[in-house]
Simulated assay, not measured.
Amino acid sequence: MTPRLLWASERKLSVESAQSMSITLDSDENSAWLILGGSAMVDDGNGPVTAGPGEWLIPPPKLRQQSFQGPLHFISVTFSAKWDSGQHLFPMNKTMLLEAGDCPRLEIEARRVVDAVASRVTMKSWYLGAHEVSFRDWLAFQEVLLGWMDCFAQVMEEQGVSTTIPDAADARFLEAQRILNDHNLDEKISVDDLAAAVGLSRRQLERLYQMEINCSPRVVFEKRRIQFARWALSRPDARIKEVAAELGFADISNFRRWFTRIQGVAPKAFAKWVR
């Protein structure tokens, strides 16, 4: 597993700018927001949870509604941490609300991450995937990210979220995952061909995926495509038509419908939000 820092920032937003960040988002990453002024709300299907000044709001990596009230001042850290099987290191299923005073080290480590990013990246976009960084900068990001994750893991364990290493996955599942990860994003995936490549029938492969990660091979591949789309749309010079073409969509309207169905928001609105 190689964790990735996706963004880290401390931001101050006006009432209007904060309201413009309200969005329905299908996220596959871990996020944590420390509210210093204003408020933030997340509804992940378990009811709304609102954080005010001096509180951490930690949403799960799933479909959620989120809204902000300004003037807003907050620290945000988002990262991806998954095992090779695709399972999340922190398998959260509901939003957490924590008093910052109960976990002071979390803010200290978050500020270390934010400072490392701010000193190395000109924030044309606050999504780090939109920036080219040197190997030494990448190492610096990994160093502060691991410090943050160590503290984050302690907080998660105190909240009852297990971070134990999962049992060894079936070798056929891991091989199927490797094939999916190597498959061109602009080409359709055949689950029948994938199953044959690992010596299983389609039904056996889908059953294996349900046992391992409670998800289908097709959904895994779609998540990889949507992650690329999110990264591509975060680039300051991104054009929706070009992003659609990179994913094999000849018709931009089909891309818009696909992205909106999975992500919960249109590509143009997402690009505006993430930048």
Rank of each mutant, 00 (worst) to 15 (best):
Phe141Val: 03
Gln159Leu: 08
Val161Gly: 02
Ile189Thr: 11
Gln159Val: 06
Trp148Ser: 01
Ile179Lys: 04
Ala197Asp: 07
Thr163Leu: 10
Ile165Glu: 15
Ala171Thr: 10
Asp192Trp: 03
Arg136Met: 12
Asn184Arg: 14
Phe173Pro: 04
Met156Tyr: 05
Pro166His: 02
Arg136Phe: 12
Ile165Leu: 14
Met156Gly: 06
Asp186Trp: 05
Arg172Ala: 03
Thr163Pro: 06
Glu157Ser: 07
Glu143Gln: 13
Val144Leu: 05
Leu146Glu: 14
His183Met: 06
Glu175Arg: 11
Lys188Ser: 15
Trp138Gln: 15
Ala197Thr: 04
Leu146Asp: 13
Glu143Ser: 12
His131Gln: 07
Leu180Val: 08
Ser190Pro: 02
Asp186Thr: 04
Leu146Gln: 12
Arg136Cys: 06
Lys188Asn: 13
Phe141Arg: 01
His131Ala: 08
Ile189Arg: 00
Ser134Leu: 06
Asp192His: 09
Asp150Asn: 10
Asp182Pro: 00
Ala168Gly: 05
Phe141Tyr: 06
Phe152Thr: 07
Val161Arg: 00
Leu185Val: 10
Glu175Pro: 01
Glu143Thr: 13
Glu187Gln: 12
Arg178Tyr: 07
Val191Glu: 01
Leu139Arg: 13
Ser162Met: 08
Leu185Met: 10
Ala140Phe: 02
Ala195Pro: 02
Gln159Ala: 13
Ser190Ala: 03
Val161Met: 02
Asp150Cys: 04
Ala168Gln: 11
Asp182Phe: 07
Thr164Met: 11
Leu185His: 07
Ile165Pro: 08
Leu146Ala: 11
Leu174Phe: 00
Glu157His: 04
Gln154Asn: 11
Glu187Lys: 10
Leu194Tyr: 01
Leu185Gly: 12
Glu158Arg: 13
Gln177Thr: 10
Ser134Lys: 07
Met156Leu: 10
Lys188His: 11
Asp167Tyr: 03
Phe173Leu: 05
Arg178Ile: 06
Val144Trp: 02
Asp150Leu: 10
Leu146Trp: 08
Ala153Leu: 05
Gln159Asn: 13
Trp138Lys: 13
Glu175Phe: 00
Gly160Asn: 06
Val155Glu: 02
Ala176Trp: 03
Glu158Met: 11
Asp193Trp: 00
Gln159Cys: 12
Phe152Ala: 03
Arg136Lys: 11
Ile179Gln: 08
Arg172Gly: 05
Thr164Gly: 09
Ser162Tyr: 03
Glu158Gly: 10
Phe173Ser: 04
Ala169Ile: 07
Glu187Ile: 03
Asp167Pro: 07
Gly147Asp: 11
Asp167Lys: 10
Ala169Ser: 15
Asn184Tyr: 09
Arg178Val: 09
Thr163Arg: 11
Lys188Leu: 10
Asp170Gln: 01
Arg178Ala: 15
Ile179Arg: 12
Phe173Ala: 02
Val133Ile: 14
Thr164Ile: 11
Ser162Glu: 10
Asp182Cys: 09
Leu139Ala: 13
Phe141Pro: 03
Asp182Glu: 15
Val161Asn: 01
Glu132Thr: 15
Val155Pro: 02
Glu132Gly: 14
Phe152Ser: 04
Leu174Met: 15
Asp186Leu: 01
Leu180Asp: 04
Asn184Ser: 14
Leu174Lys: 03
Ala153Asp: 09
Phe152Met: 07
Asp186Arg: 08
Glu158Pro: 00
